[in-house]
Simulated scan of single mutants.
Amino acid sequence: MDEISPARQWRVPAKLPAAKIAGAVALVVLGLLFADGDPVRLVLACLAAAGVAGWAARDLIAPVRLAVDPAGLTVIHGFAGRRLLPWSAIEAITVDRRPRLGLTTEILEIDAGSSLHLFGRYDLDTTPEEVADVLRAARPGVTG
């Protein structure tokens, strides 16, 4: 049996929530600058800023997106909840690569039968392939 640490976790990069909050502030400032007395423009800018701020709040409230331990995987569920996926429920751990606009995106896919959990680089603060390798090695009873 492979020796794994009791728990390993992956989280959003520390700078990401700050960038999202800065973006929300920028949206409000732009709304104020370009409103020209039109309340609709300002309200739309503030609504967009509130959405970005909510997105940043999720990163601050629940920064850990994925964790592994001998019992299985803990994944983020809903806005800031967590769900334990026992190893027996996990059917596949794969990395989906897709070229788009000259760039290749990678998504870690964890197939738990009735649910599919997707994680990108900015959810994990590392490449999905590295995380997939760690998860495959940590999975009990699976070789290679």
Rank of each mutant, 00 (worst) to 15 (best):
A112W: 03
D2G: 08
T126G: 06
R121F: 06
G141P: 05
L30N: 06
G113I: 08
A26D: 08
R58C: 08
D111R: 08
R97I: 12
A132C: 11
R82N: 05
V28T: 04
A49Y: 03
P39G: 05
I21M: 05
D123F: 04
K15T: 15
L101C: 09
L33S: 10
T105C: 06
R136G: 14
A132P: 09
L60F: 12
G102Q: 05
T105G: 09
W55H: 00
V40Y: 13
R41F: 14
P99H: 08
S115R: 01
S115D: 06
L124A: 03
W10F: 13
T94K: 05
V95F: 15
G144K: 12
L44F: 11
A45C: 09
A53Y: 03
R100Y: 13
T126Y: 00
G81N: 03
G72D: 01
T105R: 08
D133N: 15
Q9D: 14
D96E: 15
R121S: 14
V64A: 03
A26G: 14
A132L: 07
G81R: 00
W87F: 13
E91Y: 00
I61T: 06
G141M: 13
R139S: 14
I61K: 00
S115E: 12
A53T: 07
D96F: 11
G120A: 14
D125E: 15
G72Y: 00
G54D: 08
R98A: 12
W10P: 02
T127E: 13
L73T: 03
A62F: 05
G37C: 09
T94S: 11
P63V: 02
R97M: 09
T143E: 12
A7F: 10
T74E: 07
R100F: 12
V52R: 01
L84I: 04
R8N: 13
G31S: 10
I93Y: 02
V28K: 04
L103C: 07
A57H: 10
C46K: 07
A35D: 06
L42H: 11
V28L: 08
C46F: 15
T127Q: 14
L73I: 02
P128T: 07
D69K: 02
K20H: 09
W87Q: 12
L118I: 05
E129W: 12
A62V: 00
P70S: 06
V64G: 02
G31E: 05
V142C: 12
T105P: 07
A89Q: 02
A50D: 00
S115G: 08
A50K: 10
A57R: 06
I93M: 05
D2C: 07
V131E: 05
I110M: 00
V43W: 12
G72T: 04
I61Y: 02
D69L: 01
D133M: 14
G120E: 04
I61D: 03
A92K: 11
G120H: 03
L101I: 06
E130P: 14
S5A: 12
H117K: 00
A14D: 14
A71S: 15
A48S: 13
K20N: 02
A92T: 13
A35F: 10
A89E: 01
L85I: 07
V29D: 05
V95P: 04
L73M: 07
